[in-house]
Structures are given as C-alpha cells and as structure tokens.
C-alpha cells in the first residue's frame, strides 16, 4: 500500500494505492494522523487504487472520521470500487461516511 498526500485548495487529498489490510492499516493511520496535524478542515481519501479494505482498514477509516469530526473538520471518501463499496454496505458503514463518485465531486462538495 502507498499513500500520497497533496493539497488542493483548503483540502488535503490522500490517494491510496493497494490494499488496506492488517499489515498496511497502521501505515495508513500514520498518514492520516499527519493530515490531522496540519489542521486541515477537509480531507478527501481517494480510494480509486484500492482493491480491498479489510475490517482493520474499515476501523481505521472510522477512527479517521471520528478524529477529524472532533476538530470540526470533514472526511470524504471518493472513487470507491464496486467491491469496496459493497464492503461498506455490508458493514452498514456507508451511511457514516460521505461517499462521492469522484475526487472532484468530493472536493466541490461543502
């Protein structure tokens, strides 16, 4: 798994490539905590390159959502593959997150 971050306007975009699983979730978490340190109010996680998210990955995303909410920011997910999207549905997490079809949609949203 590789995580790249870049700044787009006032938002920070995290682009993830690979699987978010037991091995890689701690690294993903570190990357996200760095975003929090920068006090960004809006974070978009682009999951276009993610084929699979296991339960540790989902839990890490849930924590990310919690953390950014606690500092008054917003977390948006973008470009989920059908398989990853179905994982969110099965685990009933799709209502927790703001999920957008593309990164641009996510950035444009309030």
């Amino acid at each position: 798994m590789v995580v790249k971050d870049r700044k787009v306007g006032d938002a920070i975009v995290l682009e993830v490539e690979g699987e978010i699983n037991f091995n890689s979730s701690p690294d993903f978490r570190k990357a996200f905590l760095k975003v929090l340190d920068s006090k960004a109010q809006k974070a978009v996680i682009n999951l276009a390159g993610v084929a699979y998210v296991d339960s540790s990955g989902l839990a890490t995303l849930v924590e990310a959502h919690q953390k950014i909410k606690s500092i008054g920011g917003k977390l948006k997910l973008a470009s989920l593959s059908p398989k990853v999207k179905s994982l969110f549905e099965i685990t009933k997490l799709e209502k927790l997150f703001e999920i957008y079809a593309t990164e641009d949609d996510a950035l444009k949203s309030a």
């Binding site: 037991f22 979730s25 701690p26 978490r29 540790s56 839990a59 849930v62 924590e63």
Partner: peptide, 16 residues
C-alpha cells in the same frame, strides 16, 4: 497478531 493501535482494536471489536 497485529500491530494495530488500541483505538482501532476497540472499533474493530464493536464491529465484530
């Protein structure tokens, strides 16, 4: 068996 943070484990336990 994992190097997950305690926060993450708490969330996972709730999910399971």
């Amino acid at each position: 068996h994992t190097k997950l943070d305690e926060h993450i484990i708490k969330i996972m336990v709730k999910m399971k």
